[in-house]
């Protein structure tokens, strides 16, 4: 397990990350409220508690790198800079959404920012990321591909077939992919211990000769330090690398997961002591970069930005009936 390292991140960046984490948290909380009000339909999987992982990794990636995500994809999309109004509008099923309202919560895309999407079948997007990584090298670039997925995906055949290919192609320097395991302890309601014969998930990549490590997924600074080193190495070598980030979701698996019989309140409370926002706030206060007034300022800014996103989503028109038949074929 990787622990906190000396901070090499400038104060301004730390403050920016704090603002981003608070904003993403308020955004996700708003989506839960909007879901309960019937504004958002279908499935809704929020990443409350897990925000430091996408923020740390995507901060370490270059603007021209690409990534693939599971269905828990809101925060990845937001931290990559996609307009929050477009994200909220997608959840609201509106034309102004990232995918014109045709994908919804599980399928946020923004290809202009290298976001090749969220996918709804556990593990199903991992082979795509391996092929994407091959393509980036085939095209003669030094771009890398990040592939985010949960601990549940570690037991899918898709992960293992994709990891084997990555191991093979990586030997030739042709597979610059970073596997980012977002181990939030549960695949829906089944704990890692009850689902994986080897509970230390990172080690399973040993089988494919893919270097791997575990790291704290709650401290964004730790995540970033690991991510920067790993992303640089993958970019340099064209070989895959896997990082198992240890994180936790404070909300249910999805909006329907109300009673959570698989875990105790005490367990959730224990993890809340390591809330990524709390950890960063503590660090910033210790360094004199944050005080109560500044916290209130950030909260107000975040809340206003969320409400602007909601207003945009509300005002955006529904996709017109013609959209039903668009984008099935390219011609």
């Amino acid at each position: 397990m990787q622990h906190a390292q000396p901070v090499t991140v400038p104060a301004e960046t730390l403050l920016e990350w704090y603002r981003t984490l608070v904003f993403c948290r308020r955004f996700e909380e708003q989506t839960e409220r909007s879901f309960r009000r019937g504004k958002i339909g279908g499935y809704l999987h929020v990443a409350i508690g897990q925000e430091a992982v996408p923020l740390g990794f995507l901060s370490a990636a270059r603007a021209d790198d690409v990534f693939f995500v599971s269905y828990r994809d809101h925060v990845h999309t937001l931290v990559r800079g996609t307009d929050p109004g477009a994200v909220m509008a997608e959840l609201y099923g509106k034309l102004g959404g990232t995918c014109k309202g045709k994908g919804g919560s599980m399928h946020l895309f923004d290809v202009s920012r290298g976001n090749y999407g969220g996918y709804g079948i556990v593990g199903g997007h991992i082979p795509l990321a391996v092929g994407a990584a091959y393509a980036l090298r085939y095209q003669g670039t030094d771009r890398v591909c990040l592939c985010f997925f949960g601990d549940g995906a570690m037991n899918s055949g898709a992960l293992h077939e994709a990891a084997n290919l990555a191991g093979l192609w990586g030997r030739e320097g042709l597979c610059p992919v970073v596997f980012v395991v977002e181990n939030n302890q549960y695949g829906m309601g089944t704990s890692v211990e009850r689902a994986s014969a080897v509970a230390e998930l990172a080690r399973r990549f040993d089988a494919y000769d893919i270097p791997n490590e575990r790291c704290d997924g709650m401290d964004v600074v730790v995540v970033y330090e690991v991510a920067r080193r790993v992303v640089d190495q993958v970019r340099r070598t064209g070989r895959p690398y896997a990082v198992e980030t240890i994180t936790y979701r404070f909300s249910g698996h999805g909006a329907a997961d109300l009673f959570q019989p698989y875990r105790t309140k005490e367990e959730v409370e224990r993890w809340r002591q390591r809330d990524p926002i709390l950890l960063l706030e503590r660090r910033l206060r210790q360094e004199g970069l944050l005080d109560d007034a500044r916290v209130r300022e950030v909260e107000a800014w975040a809340e206003q930005r969320v409400q602007e996103a909601v207003a945009f989503a509300e005002a955006s028109p529904e996709p017109p009936p013609e959209e039903l038949y668009r984008d099935v074929y390219g011609g």
Binding site: V66, I126, L128, G131, A132, Y138, G157, A162, N164, L165
Partner: peptide
């Protein structure tokens, strides 16, 4: 050459999925 003619393992899920990812990136 082997970059353009890729012998795969017996792993259809993996290599067909990878081919989809290649196509999404413009190959």
């Amino acid at each position: 050459g082997p970059r353009r003619v890729i012998d795969t393992p017996i792993s259809e899920l993996g290599f067909i999925g990878a081919a989809i990812g290649m196509a999404m990136l413009g190959l």
